[in-house]
C-alpha cells in the first residue's frame, strides 16, 4: 500500500472511531428530514406561484442550507479536533508529510461526506415525496443529477471547512469564517452592489461558495467547478501554511 493510502486508512479509522462522527451524520439526517417534510408544501406552493416547476428535490434543496453547515463542521473537526486535543503531534509523527496528511484527510472527509450526503438527500427526497408528488414532474435523470450534485456540494463544503480549519486551527474561529464566507459575504456584497449601483459586485457575490453551490445544485455544473476551486484553494493554503508552521 502506498503512503497516501496508508495515511487515508488511518484517517478513516480515526473518523469512524469517535462517536461525534455518527452524531454529525444523525444530526444532518434529522435536519434534512425535518426541513424536507415541513417545508415541502410551502416550497411547492411558492414555486407554483412563481411559475417555476416543482422538482422531487425542491424541499431537499431548502434543507441544504442547514445540512451544509453541519457537515461543514464535521469536515473542519477532522483538523481542528486534532489541534484542540494536541493529538496532531501523534498524527504528524505517523505521517510527517503535511501534503500527504491533508490529501488523505481531504480524500476521506470528501468521500465520507459525499456518500452520507447522497444518502441523506435520497432519504430527504423520499420523505418529502408524499406531499410533493401532487405537484412535481418526475424526471429520473434530473433527480439523479440533482442528488449527485448535492452530495458533491456537501463534500466540497466539508473540504472547504477542512482547509479553513487547517489555516485557523481553532473550531470557533473556523466556524465563524465558514459562516461568513458561505452566508454573510455574498449577502453583504449584494447589499453593497445595490447601494453603490455596482453590478459587478453582484457577479462577484455569485461566485462565492454559498451562491455558487446553490447554482451548482440547481443544475449548472460549471458552478461546481467554482466551488471546487474554493475548496482546493483552501486545502492548498492549508498545506502551505502547515508546511511553514511549527506543529
Amino acid at each position: 500500500m502506498n503512503a497516501l493510502a496508508r495515511a487515508a486508512s488511518a484517517e478513516w479509522m480515526k473518523l469512524r472511531s469517535v462517536r461525534s462522527t455518527w452524531w454529525f451524520a444523525g444530526g444532518a439526517l434529522l435536519t434534512m428530514l425535518l426541513v424536507a417534510v415541513l417545508e415541502a408544501d410551502d416550497t411547492a406552493r411558492f414555486l407554483l406561484k412563481e411559475g417555476r416547476p416543482v422538482e422531487p428535490v425542491s424541499s431537499v434543496l431548502d434543507a441544504m442550507e442547514w445540512v451544509q453547515l453541519i457537515l461543514g463542521s464535521f469536515g473542519m473537526l477532522a483538523v481542528t479536533a486534532e489541534y484542540a486535543t494536541r493529538s496532531i503531534v501523534v498524527t504528524l509523527a505517523c505521517t510527517p508529510s503535511r501534503t500527504r496528511l491533508l490529501l488523505a484527510k481531504t480524500a476521506v472527509v470528501g468521500a465520507a461526506v459525499f456518500a452520507a450526503g447522497g444518502l441523506i438527500a435520497v432519504l430527504g427526497t423520499v420523505a418529502g415525496a408524499p406531499q410533493l408528488q401532487r405537484y412535481w414532474e418526475f424526471d429520473t435523470a434530473q433527480v439523479t443529477g440533482r442528488i449527485l450534485s448535492m452530495a458533491a456540494h456537501l463534500a466540497l463544503i466539508a473540504v472547504l471547512a477542512l482547509g479553513l480549519g487547517t489555516l485557523i486551527r481553532r473550531s470557533a474561529g473556523t466556524l465563524s469564517v465558514l459562516f461568513v464566507v458561505v452566508f454573510v459575504l455574498p449577502i453583504a456584497l449584494q447589499g453593497i452592489a445595490t447601494s453603490l449601483n455596482a453590478e459587478f459586485l453582484n457577479t462577484v457575490a455569485g461566485f462565492m461558495p454559498g451562491p455558487a453551490g446553490k447554482r451548482f445544485m440547481a443544475g449548472e455544473p460549471a458552478f461546481g467547478l467554482v466551488l471546487t476551486a474554493w475548496a482546493a484553494t483552501a486545502v492548498a493554503a492549508g498545506v502551505w501554511v502547515m508546511r511553514k508552521r511549527d506543529a
Partner: peptide, 22 residues
C-alpha cells in the same frame, strides 16, 4: 505528550490508526 490523544477514541482505536498509517 501522553495526554495528546483524542479523548473520545478508545486506546485500541488510537493505536490501530497509528498502525494503519505504518
Amino acid at each position: 505528550d501522553a495526554k495528546a490523544v483524542h479523548p473520545a477514541r478508545s486506546g485500541r482505536d488510537h493505536l490501530r490508526a497509528m498502525a494503519l498509517s505504518q
